[in-house]
């Protein structure tokens, strides 16, 4: 009987972990694009960004110089090549902001956001409020929903985490 309870408990924990992973994703990306002057030119940008894995809808605002990518249902937007794609369209991406949901882990002294659908991981840049909150949780893995900007990592000893996320807003799920 104890064995059955042990297995059921294990399955419950595994299911809970899978549930939180399934919700981890980049839901929206907002790219500040420089050089965007006309709608005819913007077509190339739309076409490039629509091909990005996980992207469902692309909205371009010429007057704001902004391209907004919204994810397909239950998919995460692949963000690794966004700057290169904007360049291939003939423009320059200056700022990439994301709305993301994922599991926060502490690895090698850094908080990392694991985005399972894209197999990407983001180092969370120093955020005192988030750090203190996560410290109180005593290292437990937590799912958060956050908004912030992406940048190439500044830390060289974490090869598996190519991007850093500067969080401007978050909530713990």
């Amino acid at each position: 009987m104890r064995k059955v309870i042990f297995i059921l408990t294990g399955l419950f924990i595994l299911q809970a972990g899978l549930f939180s992973s399934a919700n981890a994703q980049i839901k929206q990306v907002r790219i500040k694009v420089n050089g965007l002057a006309c709608s005819f030119c913007a077509y190339g940008l739309e076409k490039k960004l629509k091909k990005v894995d996980g992207v469902g809808k692309v909205t371009i605002s010429l007057n704001d110089g902004l391209a907004t990518l919204n994810s397909k249902a239950d998919q995460s937007i692949e963000f690794a090549n966004l700057k290169a794609l904007v360049k291939a369209a003939g423009f320059s991406a200056t700022k990439i902001a994301v709305t993301v949901q994922g599991v926060v882990k502490k690895t090698d002294g850094f908080y990392v956001l694991a985005i399972t659908h894209s197999e990407e991981k983001l180092i969370i840049k120093n955020n005192e409020k988030l750090n203190s909150l996560l410290s109180l949780l005593n290292g437990a893995q937590k799912t958060i929903r956050a908004r912030g900007t992406l940048s190439q990592k500044e830390t060289s000893n974490l090869n598996s985490h190519p991007f850093a996320l500067s969080i401007t807003w978050f909530e713990i799920k």
């Binding site: 420089n34 050089g35 965007l36 002057a37 010429l62 007057n63 110089g65 003939g90 423009f91 320059s92």
Partner: peptide, 9 residues
């Protein structure tokens, strides 16, 4: 040569 600025190229 290309120099991109907000709304200008």
């Amino acid at each position: 040569w290309r120099d991109d600025k907000p709304g200008v190229q």
